[in-house]
Lab assay of single mutants.
Amino acid sequence: QVNIAPGSLDKALNQYAAHSGFTLSVDASLTRGKQSNGLHGDYDVESGLQQLLDGSGLQVKPLGNNSWTLEP
């Protein structure tokens, strides 16, 4: 069960990665100043990332080996 409060997208993504045990490689300029609506409930990694990114204009991309990145 994930419980991440709304706020900074950077912070939300870092909390989610730490909670879910995956690696997220992101260029900080992509997420700077963006906000997230947070995340509450049970999600697989990709669904949770998509939910956190909702409205940010960013997309999640798998890199393999439980690693992910973001792209515009």
Rank of each mutant, 00 (worst) to 15 (best):
N14H: 14
V45H: 06
D27M: 07
G57M: 05
Q50W: 12
G38K: 02
K61Q: 05
S36Q: 08
N14V: 13
S56H: 11
Q59M: 13
D10N: 07
G7K: 04
Q59I: 14
K11L: 12
K11R: 13
V45K: 04
P6S: 09
W68C: 05
L13E: 00
Q35H: 13
A28Y: 10
V26R: 03
A18S: 10
L9M: 05
Q1K: 13
G21A: 04
A18Y: 09
G33C: 14
Q35A: 08
D44T: 12
G41P: 00
K61E: 01
T69R: 10
V26I: 13
Q1G: 12
G64L: 05
L9T: 00
A18V: 11
L30P: 01
L9P: 01
E46T: 09
L30E: 03
L39A: 04
N14Y: 13
D54L: 15
K34T: 01
N66K: 06
Q51R: 14
Y43H: 07
V60F: 11
N37K: 14
L53E: 00
A28R: 12
V45C: 08
A28M: 10
A18I: 12
G48K: 00
V45N: 04
K61G: 03
L53A: 05
E46F: 15
W68A: 00
G64A: 06
A18L: 13
G21R: 08
R32P: 03
D27I: 08
P6Y: 05
P62V: 08
T23N: 11
S20D: 04
L58C: 05
V45L: 08
V26N: 04
S67N: 11
F22Q: 04
A5D: 09
S67E: 12
S47E: 11
V2N: 03
N14D: 11
L52G: 00
L53F: 03
P62S: 14
N65W: 08
Q50N: 12
L63H: 07
L58N: 00
A5F: 09
V2I: 11
L9A: 01
S36T: 15
K34G: 02
G48D: 02
Q59Y: 11
S29R: 12
L53V: 12
K34N: 02
N66I: 02
A12Q: 05
L70R: 04
S47V: 09
N65K: 11
N66V: 00
P62A: 14
Y16A: 00
K61P: 02
G33H: 07
P72D: 07
G33Y: 08
I4M: 02
Y16P: 00
A17W: 04
G21I: 04
L70F: 06
N65I: 09
L49H: 02
R32L: 12
L49V: 01
A17Q: 08
P72M: 11
L9G: 01
H40C: 14
